[in-house]
Design a protein around this nucleic acid. Structure first.
Lengths: 197, 197
DNA sequence: GGGGGAGCCTATAGATCCTAGGAAAGGTGG
DNA sequence: CCACCTTTCCTAGGATCTATAGGCTCCCCC
């Protein structure tokens, strides 16, 4: 009997594809095994279990998303870079909804696996280096990075959940939101009295 | 044998409590039944199934969150109202993590049930009426509402997923983020050429 | 070509979702 | 006060899923 050529990466990829097609929480060991033409017990040789698989999908998604953002922002600066960054983020979420939702799992990903994945760390670096163009000093820079990530993730997440239904097209609010974000970063407010240092 | 006194609302509440304790995706029909001292088959008389239960938990959470926000913002205006609104949102997410994640499900909630729940509609009204203090005209007002919701949800969501680990306390970034949001709303940028109407 | 390890299998146990049909509790009308 | 009927909850059971244990066979490497 010919071997299916399984691998942790191939199992993860099959799970990711399935997640995009039917939603992350319909990704099951049995379904992934069916898609690979294999019995479900065979998967456990490559992946610790369902939790582990979901964590691996999340890391795959983080890596892919980071790569897209890096490509989109390469050679750009300032406002152009910001828009390219944000659009790449949103487009990834649209293209891979299942993978994207995997990145939201508050689950404790296998730390050893996480240490190997370049995506998350690289994403932080990209964000910081892009925002450095706005001449913010710490700790404002960190706060701005977090604000931007919150806004992008929040928008994409609400959009996917149907939070912007039956009204002005989400696309237009997105464009205007990026305007607003850019303006905000250029005029980041000084600390008010009573604010944390 | 004494009756347990089940009801769709009681089942939903038990599910919500369980979600806060063990996480939304460990909320199972069997677990809810155990908590209520009942066999799992009994639940199906009150709730259509697991999907339906999750939708009901989401609506419960939306209602509760809206009530908290309404109470927090009552009698306040401008910056005070904004901060109270945001803090009530975040505090609800902290107090009820399982319920809060239920609100994120892109799931199609039973439309008939959704029509009865006052929470989601009321939340939109509250947000609009609060932001009206910033003198924005449509469509900017809608865009601002969406930006604010994105930022609040995104921050809370990333925070819960451990996205702000090992660095500046999330609390401080939150306070500064609200400063920034307030400033942004007061100086909402005009449309640039090429922006959507 | 002959180990030996890896890859995939069968078999099995336990948990879950959900349906079908039955028994009993509690209100209602005579 | 009793019979009825609706509602509530139960037992029984099928289908699907996660996960483990152990066996067979393919394929690489010496």
């Amino acid at each position: 009997m010919p071997r299916a050529g399984l691998t942790a990466d191939r199992v993860t990829l099959a799970g990711a594809e399935l997640a995009d097609e039917v939603g992350l929480d319909h990704v099951t060991m049995a379904a992934v095994a069916r898609r690979l033409g294999v019995k479900d017990a065979s998967l456990y040789a490559h992946v610790r279990g369902l939790e582990d698989l979901r964590g691996r999908i999340a890391l795959l998604a983080a890596d892919e998303k980071t790569i897209r953002i890096a490509e989109a922002t390469a050679g750009r600066a300032g406002r152009d870079a910001l828009v390219a960054f944000a659009n790449a983020w949103r487009r990834y979420a649209h293209d891979h909804p299942g993978r994207y939702t995997a990145t939201q799992i508050p689950t404790q990903i296998d730390p050893e696996l996480l240490a190997l994945a370049p995506g998350p760390r690289r994403a932080v670096e990209l964000t910081y280096s892009m925002l450095r163009a706005y001449a913010l000093d710490e700790p404002d820079l960190t706060d701005a990075v977090r604000l931007m990530r919150s806004m992008l993730h929040g928008f994409v997440s609400l959009e996917a959940a149907g939070g912007f239904a039956h009204a002005r097209p989400a696309e237009e609010s997105w464009v205007r939101g990026l305007d607003a974000l850019h303006t905000l970063l250029e005029h980041w407010p000084a600390r008010r009295e009573g604010d944390p240092a």
